[in-house]
Amino acid sequence: MPELGAFLAMGGYGAYVWSAYAITGLILGLLVVASLRARRSMRANLDEAEQASPRRRAR
């Protein structure tokens, strides 16, 4: 696997390149996961609140 090794080495800059991409991926990934989770739990809250409330606003 010399090709893969060369690719990972990035001409000697491997540690820099991969850590930069890893940090970017980590932050963006966490942001997406946190946002989706918050939306899911808030939607569950909304369902609960809508069921609990007397149906005044039947649209």
């Binding site: 946002s35 989706l36 918050a38 939306r39 808030m42 939607r43 809250n45 909304l46 609140a49 809508e50 609990a52 409330s53 007397p54 005044r56």
Partner: peptide
């Protein structure tokens, strides 16, 4: 957009709770 959906849902929950 995801966060706006969340925030709008939250506002709706607050409004529903207030009326309730």
């Amino acid at each position: 957009i995801i966060r706006m959906q969340t925030e709008l849902a939250r506002r709706r929950v607050m409004a529903l709770r207030r009326t309730a």
